[in-house]
Every structure is written in structure tokens, then in C-alpha cells.
């Protein structure tokens, strides 16, 4: 039987440590990664939604590396594991700002991880996207560069 609190197949490639260490910390963690947020969703909204599952200790908003604006993800940490599990069960895959958000275990926030890892500063997924997503800055970064080529001919 599939359990919604089990680890997903995603592993953070930048994790410092072995795969088994990573899995151990994921299993003990009270921190969640929240993805597919709209760039316009605020910390206050996330706080309200995730508080429905328990007391939130801290929220770290994911930011564009260069622009320092929200880029569609965040980390939510609870005081206790059971409340983070509740969020995995009841919030994962439900709507926030009309988007189905993704909730997954995270090994714990480390300074620097709040920034997007894409070349353009946002999340990598927003570079290669070919669809139009109004909540995440329109077309993917690469595509939008092609659509609107550099008009500066000097």
C-alpha cells in the first residue's frame, strides 16, 4: 500500500553526505520542501495553510538568486515530525492560489538553499518549461529568450 508519508524518489543532489545519511535525515526530518508555488504566493498564505496541520516553526521562502524575489518554492519546518507528516498527508497535492502544490520531505534547511539553482537565478524547472504559466513568470526562461530575442543590435 502506498503511504503518503514515505520518501519520494527525489534526492537533493547537493546534499553533503552519503545517500544513506541523506535518507536517514529525511526520515527524521521535520522539514518539508514545498514546490509548484505561484511566484505571487506569500509566506503568510503558506503559513496559514500549513498551520492547519500543526505549529510551524519557520518558513524559508525560495528566492531568485539574482532578483531576490520569490521563485516558486519554500521550506516549511514544524516542531514535531508527526505534524510534518500530517502536511504530507493532507496538504500535498491540494490547492494554494489555484495551483496544486507539491510537498516532499527535506533533509533540513541549510543557508544558501533558499536560492534557485537555475542559470538565470530561478528554479531549474522554469528554464526548460515550454508551457505558459502565468503564476511562474510566463514561458520558461530559455523559451522566452528565443521568443523575445535581444533587440539590442549595437
Amino acid at each position: 500500500m502506498f503511504a503518503s508519508v514515505e520518501l519520494s524518489s527525489y534526492r537533493d543532489q547537493h546534499f553533503k553526505g552519503s545517500r544513506s545519511e541523506q535518507e536517514r535525515s529525511l526520515r527524521d526530518s521535520c522539514t518539508l520542501y514545498v514546490g509548484n508555488l505561484s511566484f505571487y504566493t506569500t509566506e503568510e498564505q503558506i503559513h496559514e495553510l500549513f498551520s492547519r496541520c500543526g505549529d510551524v516553526r519557520v518558513i524559508v521562502m525560495g528566492l531568485d538568486k539574482y532578483k531576490k524575489t520569490p521563485c516558486g518554492f519554500c521550506f516549511v519546518e514544524y516542531y514535531v515530525r508527526s505534524e510534518a507528516e500530517a502536511a504530507m498527508r493532507f496538504v500535498n497535492g491540494t490547492r494554494l492560489d489555484d495551483r496544486l502544490i507539491r510537498v516532499d520531505w527535506d533533509a533540513g534547511f541549510v543557508e544558501g538553499r533558499q536560492y534557485g539553482r537555475g542559470k538565470t537565478g530561478g528554479q531549474v524547472r522554469d528554464e526548460y518549461r515550454t508551457d505558459y504559466d502565468a503564476g511562474r513568470g510566463g514561458y520558461g526562461k530559455l523559451l522566452s529568450q528565443k521568443i523575445a530575442p535581444n533587440t539590442d543590435n549595437r
Binding site: R52, C53, A86, R89, F90, V91, T94
Partner: peptide, 11 residues
């Protein structure tokens, strides 16, 4: 259980 347990089920 918490309200969201029932709420998420109804959704």
C-alpha cells in the same frame, strides 16, 4: 482528528 483530515478527504 484535525479538521484538515476531514477537509482534505472531502476535497
Amino acid at each position: 482528528w484535525t479538521t484538515i483530515t476531514y477537509g482534505s478527504l472531502l476535497v
